[in-house]
């Protein structure tokens, strides 16, 4: 039967919460053993980063929505943390199967990877809750993508890199959520990845250097 917008929103939220019922906001024993297998153990950095970004998220959420909503923001952050650890474990298991390695030191010590994964999880949570609970919220306080990139200081190109693996690693994502993440991908590739401080320009330069210089410079009209 057709649902009212409020019922549909509540069902979406319930689906997310049900799917995370067994997920912890701390690394599982499987994740801890991946951390311990690393050449450089990332456990402390990961836990401290979650703690630090949690404080930042709570402050920015409260700034955007109202100081009385700070705890609501922090609860959403904690849901995102649970999703992050679950996806991280799933990704590492897939990589272990694919590459036959168990030492993911470089990946797990890469703050861009961790922040992007956490950012993607928070984006899923924020998109799930949407804005229906905050009527009258102004355009300046829109918490939908790419707000989370600015809050966590994530480069759009790095965020882009986790999206497909995130979708593969999390089978509970609804079709609507996958479409939302896909729209984030498109926005990054069309616009956000081409901001002046993007790593994409250096990667293009390196790729061109590896392939050898072109003989003729491109005409300026190109």
């Amino acid at each position: 039967p057709p649902q009212t917008p409020v019922r549909a929103a509540m069902n979406t939220i319930q689906h997310l919460m049900n799917s995370l019922a067994a997920a912890s906001d701390k690394p599982s024993s499987t994740l801890i053993s991946y951390f311990n297998n690393c050449t450089s153990n990332p456990t402390n950095d990961i836990l401290e980063r979650v703690n630090h970004l949690g404080k930042i998220f709570k402050e920015r959420f409260a700034e955007a929505v109202g100081q009385g909503c700070a705890e609501i923001g922090f609860e959403r952050f904690k849901v995102g943390v649970r999703l992050t650890y679950r996806v991280m474990e799933s990704m590492l298991k897939s990589e272990e199967q694919r590459l036959s390695v168990q030492n993911f030191s470089k990946l797990l010590n890469d703050s861009a990877f961790h922040k992007s994964l956490l950012g993607c999880s928070i984006e899923v949570v924020m998109a799930t809750y949407g804005r229906s609970a905050f009527d009258g919220i102004s355009r300046e306080t829109d918490l939908s993508f790419p707000w989370i990139l600015e809050v966590f200081k994530i480069k759009p190109y790095d965020f882009y890199k986790v999206i497909e693996s995130f979708i593969k690693a999390e089978p509970s994502l609804t079709r609507e959520m996958i479409k939302h993440l896909e729209s984030c991908e498109h926005r990054i590739m069309e616009t956000l990845a081409w901001q002046s401080d993007s790593p994409i320009f250096e990667l293009i330069r390196q790729s061109r250097d590896r392939e050898g210089q072109v003989d003729q410079p491109e005409p300026t009209s190109c």
Binding site: F104, K106, K161, S165, I167, K168
Partner: peptide
Amino acid sequence: CNDYHFGLEEGEGISELFDCD
């Protein structure tokens, strides 16, 4: 997710994307 475009090729994964290969 049957209409999501999976762009990663065979032999590509998160490790390669973050330059960890």
